[in-house]
């Protein structure tokens, strides 16, 4: 990609979500795993979404793609803007075309989306066919150009070309995840959503995969949404980060400033629970309790039952995101009007 092209690609967010609300009908009532979430994904940047399990990270990703693990879930409000167009309300066919061509996906368990009875090469080719990929040489034999594209993709993720003739069970976990990345890149998407892409991998393989993703993002100026529960991974690879708690964003900011001066009590608690490689001795403050049940979320600020700074106001009103020097943080402590 030429410097000029790179420049133009990095100008606006590739995708932005505004006030997104997602609901799931469940036996325990209506739950809102995503409750008024806004995020922005600029080209050429790695944006981290971090939070403990059940905080709504995956549901946010599913909502962007409108592809839910359960038919009981639906987007109930807000917008998902891909460039100028709102994806909410698109037909399933339109969404199918967008997924895989403009938005690539990488999952935690790479084997779950690979077809066990097809070779790796055939699976990537099918994807190129389905999206009528035309990035190759315009004339000539389509089949041939697809095959070339497959080799090119496998090479770019550090796999030998002959992997295209192999079946998923003949690959290791790390190799499967590389295939997952190759397949997410197949149609040159603008945004890649990676949901815990290295959580199931050993640490040396995780390092290889993270390095690969950093390289590809740099070379292709693609926007990358990296969902993880690991603050170490965020600090190592992300440019910007959203911290989620119980379906809402509690803090966001540029990675360096956010780690240097976390604003929200929950972010601070998370960081004190992080055990760094240089630390030793006693574990710092551990926030009591655990992530709340979304069927009966706490009133007001959802962190208030666990927060060491909670005030009467915190259980009555949900705090908005206040501007901070490092980004934004949803806590009443930042409000001038708080007594």
């Amino acid at each position: 990609m030429s410097p000029a092209e790179l420049q133009s690609k990095t100008a606006h967010p590739v995708l932005a979500i505004e006030n997104l609300v997602t609901e799931i009908r469940s036996v325990r009532g209506l739950i809102r795993p995503v409750d008024g979430v806004s995020m922005s994904f600029p080209a050429g940047k790695i944006v981290g979404v971090v939070g403990e399990s059940g905080s709504g990270k995956s549901m946010t990703a599913f909502s962007i793609m409108q592809l839910f693990p359960t038919s009981a879930a639906r987007v109930a409000g807000g917008r998902v803007l891909l460039g100028e167009t709102d994806l909410i309300g698109r037909s399933p066919e339109q969404m199918r075309a967008i997924r895989g061509s403009r938005i690539g996906m990488i999952f935690q368990d790479p084997t779950s989306f690979l077809n066990p009875v097809l070779t790796i090469g055939r699976q990537i080719e099918q994807q190129l066919e389905a999206h009528r990929w035309t990035g190759g040489p315009p004339a000539g034999d389509r089949g041939q150009s697809y095959a070339n594209r497959v080799s090119e993709l496998l090479t770019s993720v550090g796999l030998p070309r002959d992997v295209s003739t192999r079946y998923p069970h003949q690959l290791s976990g790390g190799q499967c995840q590389r295939v997952g990345i190759a397949s997410a890149l197949a149609c040159d998407p603008d945004l890649i959503i990676a949901d815990e892409p290295t959580t199931a991998l050993d640490v040396t393989i995780q390092a290889q995969i993270l390095r690969l993703m950093m390289r590809l993002q740099r070379e292709r100026a693609v926007a990358l949404m990296l969902i993880t529960h690991d603050l170490g991974v965020v600090a190592e690879v992300c440019d910007y980060v959203y911290v989620m708690y119980a379906g809402r964003i509690v803090e966001e900011g540029d990675v360096r400033s956010l780690f240097a001066a976390p604003q929200h009590p929950y972010t601070r608690a998370l960081m004190s629970g992080v055990l760094s490689l240089t630390g030793t001795g006693n574990i710092g403050f551990a926030v009591p309790g655990s992530v709340p049940d979304l069927a009966a979320p706490p009133s007001g600020c959802r962190f208030h039952p666990r927060c060491p700074h909670a005030m009467p106001r915190c259980s009555q009103e949900a705090p908005p995101l206040f501007d901070r020097p490092s980004g934004r943080s949803a806590c009443w402590l930042h409000d001038e009007a708080t007594p």
């Binding site: 690991d230 170490g232 600090a235 360096r256 960081m271 760094s276």
Partner: peptide
């Protein structure tokens, strides 16, 4: 290979 939770020492 172990991630360090500090961007300054990434």
């Amino acid at each position: 290979a172990t991630p360090v939770a500090d961007p300054e020492r990434a």
